[in-house]
Design a protein around this nucleic acid. Structure first.
Lengths: 234, 234
DNA sequence: TGCATGCAATTTGTCGACAGGAAAGCATGG
DNA sequence: CCATGCTTTCCTGTCGACAAATTGCATGCA
C-alpha cells in the first residue's frame, strides 16, 4: 500500500511530455520491444505514459517523419516493417555515408571533435572487451555519429543518423549470434580512421571507411542472408 | 453581400486538415511567401485556414522534422534561415545526390520509369522554351526526382527531395536574374542522361551527373556569391 | 539616469470531449 | 451453411479550453 496521498509524481516539466513519449517510443521501436508491424494505439500509449493523446500524437508524427512508423488514415499507426528484400539499398546508402562523413571529418574537424571521437572510441573498445553486443552496437553508433558531426554537413549527418538507427534495429534481431572476434578488428580500424582524420588525409579516410563499411555490411549480411538469400535481387 | 446562409464551405474531409495546412505552409515557405526567420503563430495560421490549432501543430511538427522550421520551446516557431555561410555543404550534398541517384537509376530503372522521366523532361523543355524561370525550377526538380525514384533507394530519394526543396527556396531568391541561355544547355544534358540511363551505363551516368551538378552549382554560386563571397570558408 | 523587480499580455503545451470512419460482429435471407 | 447488409464498437481527427512560461512594459530604487 504505497499510495498515501499522491500516487506518482504527476508533475512534469512543461514541454517535456511529447519529447518523453518520442524518446520512449523511439527506443522501444529500435530495441524491437515494439515489433515491426505491430499497431500503436494512441489511448493505450497515453494511459501507459500518463499523458493525454496530444503529446502521443506529436511523437507519432515525428516518428512517421523518420520512417519508423507508418500512419494509416483513420486507422492505428503501425511500426514500420524491416524491408528485407531491399536491404541492399540500405547497405549501399550506409556504405556511402560511412565514406563521405569520414572524408568530411578529415576536412572540417576541429580539435574538440577529435576529443569527442576518441572518447567514443574508448567507450566502444570497453564494450568490445566486455563482449557486450548491445553496448557495442550503441557505442559504435556514437563513434561514427561523432565523426559525422565533425564533418559539419547537416544533410549527411541526418541521413547517417537515420541509417544508423535502422541498423540498430536490424542488429537487434541478430545480436545473439554476434561474432565476438570481429569487433576487435573494428577497434583497430577505428584507430586508423582517427589517425587519418587527424592527419586530414581525405583519401586515406575514404579507403578506410570503405573497407570498414564493407566489413560491417558483410557481417550483417552473414547474419541475415541465410533466411533471405533467395529474395536478394540479381 | 455574399453571405447568404453559410459563409464558406466549412465541410472538409476528415484527415485532410493537417495535410492541407502542411501543404500550404510548405509551399509558402519554399516560395518565400513566409520569409526565413519570420515567426509562425499557431492561432494566426489556424484562423487564416479555418481550422483549429491541432492540425496546425501537426503540420509544424512535420515541417520541423524536415528542417523547414525551427521550434523554440514555449516560443513561436520560426521559418528556418538559409545558411549562406555553409552553402558549400548544400552544394556538396546536392552534387553527390545527383550522382548517386542517376547511377542507381541506370541500375534499377524499369520501362515505366523511363516514360515518367521523359515526360518530365518534355515539360522542362517547354518551360525553358517559354523562358519561365519558376516553371524551370519546378520541372527540373520533377525530372531529377523521377530519376531518383527510378533508382529505388528510399534513403537517397528522401535526402535528394529535401535538397531539391532547399534549392527551390534558394533559387526563389534569384530567379529574376536567371540566365536564359544556360537552361538550354541543361535540356541537352538531360537528354544525354536519359540515354545513359536507358543504356544502363553507370559510369557515363556518373560523369554526366557530375558535370550537370557542377553546371547548376556554378550557376547558383554566380547568382549568390557576390553578396556572400567574403563569408565562404577557405 | 540606469537597473532591478513585479505585473500583464501573449503564445505555447496539454487536456478532455465529441464526431466521423473503418473494422468486427450480428442478423437476415438465399 | 454461406453471402450480404446492418449495427455496433473502437479508434482516430479535430475542437475548444485551461494552465504554464516567456516577453514586454511599467514602476520603484540606487
Amino acid at each position: 500500500m504505497t499510495d498515501i496521498t499522491d500516487t506518482e509524481a504527476p508533475v512534469r516539466k512543461r514541454g517535456s511530455g511529447a519529447q518523453m513519449v518520442y524518446n520512449i517510443l523511439r527506443d522501444e521501436i529500435l530495441d524491437l520491444v515494439l515489433a515491426p508491424g505491430s499497431p500503436i494505439e494512441e489511448v493505450q500509449i497515453s494511459e501507459r505514459l500518463k499523458v493525454s493523446r496530444t503529446p502521443v500524437r506529436e511523437a507519432l508524427v515525428r516518428l512517421a517523419g523518420e520512417g519508423l512508423v507508418s500512419t494509416l488514415p483513420n486507422r492505428s499507426t503501425v511500426v514500420s516493417q524491416i524491408d528485407f528484400p531491399n536491404l541492399h539499398h540500405f547497405f549501399d546508402a550506409l556504405t556511402l555515408m560511412y565514406r563521405v562523413t569520414t572524408r568530411k571529418a578529415a576536412e572540417f574537424h576541429k580539435p574538440a571533435d577529435l576529443e569527442a571521437i576518441r572518447r567514443h572510441q574508448a567507450t566502444y573498445a570497453a564494450a568490445v572487451e566486455n563482449r557486450n553486443a548491445l553496448a557495442m552496437i550503441s557505442t559504435n553508433r556514437d563513434f561514427h555519429a561523432a565523426i559525422a558531426m565533425a564533418g559539419r554537413n547537416p544533410y549527411y549527418v541526418s541521413l547517417f543518423l537515420r541509417l544508423l538507427d535502422d541498423g540498430r534495429r536490424l542488429l537487434r534481431l541478430y545480436y545473439q549470434s554476434f561474432d565476438d572476434n570481429l569487433p576487435r578488428r573494428y577497434v583497430a580500424e577505428h584507430d586508423e580512421m582517427i589517425k587519418a582524420i587527424a592527419a586530414r588525409n581525405v583519401d586515406e579516410c575514404d579507403r578506410l571507411a570503405t573497407a570498414h563499411a564493407d566489413q560491417i555490411v558483410q557481417q550483417i549480411q552473414k547474419l541475415i542472408l541465410p533466411e533471405h538469400r533467395e529474395r536478394v535481387p540479381l
